[in-house]
């Protein structure tokens, strides 16, 4: 009994350093940032004068100021970016994993090619994508547009990230940015799904085939349902990357004309370190954190419930 108690203490002590570090570096700093977001700190010198929710009200002021307009655009952009980016990673990743799972010669080569983008720094991939989607002009086509022209697909040419039009609140300029981000991280979902497919026992597939299911049927009814937990954890990992995204868009297009490719991460960085609006920057990051929380906390609750059930 005392032995067990001692061991429980030891278990706690083993985790304690991590707990302390996380308490300070995560929760302490979040609290500090939250405090700044409630202050009037505007300029290099810290100023903790209480401001209540003024900074939040400013960002959500309906229609009025440029900052509020920008922030509203940013939130919509984040929403559509996240939605389409996740969809692209899941669909393409799953497709590639299924293809790779067909006992392919040279699987290692394909896998390395699909994973390779993850190895390259965002700082540089952003520039490469900026060049690739630079539209050029009618007389001087560039990048993808030049390629499309050379194969006769002129109907598919458009302004890519320079296009300022939108469908409802969705800015079409986000499409090339989403392609770039999906290119960088699809390798991750591919690897995850591939791992999941490898975990499906061969007997299960055989049994389904014996029951008369064709290959597509086996995937639809047997395998895909088994991959759901993978989809969920991939969505969470990629989802939080997407909600915080900064480097890639910052180097690829920046805010874009009319803020068509702007996201809260860029707004936060620019307002804090260029405009010296520290309180506003802190406010934006707290809102970013809240959006991430909205996505993550239900997931955490869900997966813990499931664990208890098991």
């Amino acid at each position: 009994m005392t032995h067990a108690r001692r061991e429980r203490w030891l278990a706690f002590l083993m985790v304690l350093p991590s707990i302390i570090l996380i308490a300070i570096f995560v929760y302490g700093f979040i609290g500090w940032t939250a405090r700044v977001s409630l202050s009037r700190w505007d300029g290099i010198r810290p100023d903790y004068t209480w401001a209540g929710l003024d900074n939040y009200k400013q960002l959500f002021a309906g229609g009025g100021s440029v900052a509020a307009r920008r922030f509203a655009i940013d939130l919509w952009n984040t929403f559509f970016f996240t939605l389409l980016f996740l969809a692209a990673c899941v669909v393409v990743g799953l497709l590639l994993a299924i293809l790779l799972d067909q006992k392919i010669k040279g699987e290692g080569i394909f896998r390395t090619i699909y994973l390779f983008p993850m190895a390259i720094s965002f700082v540089v991939t952003g520039v490469v994508w900026q060049w690739i989607f630079a539209p050029g002009t009618e007389t001087r086509l560039r990048g993808v547009n030049a390629l499309l022209h050379s194969v006769g697909l002129d109907a598919l040419r458009w302004g890519w990230y320079t296009d300022t039009s939108s469908i409802g609140p969705f800015h079409v300029a986000l499409i090339p940015v989403i392609i770039a981000a999906a290119w960088q991280l699809t390798g991750y979902t591919t690897a995850m799904y591939l791992a999941g497919l490898r975990a499906v026992p061969e007997e299960l597939r055989e049994a389904a085939r014996v029951d008369g299911a064709n290959e597509i049927g086996v995937y639809r009814h047997i395998i895909l349902p088994m991959l759901q937990p993978i989809t969920l954890s991939a969505l969470i990992v990629l989802g939080h990357i997407s909600l915080k995204i900064f480097d890639l868009i910052y180097t690829m297009t920046g805010r874009g004309t009319g803020f068509v490719t702007d996201v809260p991460g860029i707004f936060m960085f620019e307002t804090t370190f260029q405009g010296n609006h520290y309180a506003q920057g802190a406010t934006i990051s707290i809102i970013m954190l809240l959006t991430v929380t909205l996505v993550v906390v239900p997931y955490l609750i869900y997966s813990f419930r499931r664990e208890v059930e098991l």
Partner: peptide, 18 residues
């Protein structure tokens, strides 16, 4: 000031588009 330039830049970003 940098704060002014930043605000000005935000206005320009919208202006160039519309």
């Amino acid at each position: 000031s940098e704060g002014w330039v930043t605000a000005f830049g935000d206005a320009m970003t919208l202006f160039v588009a519309d």
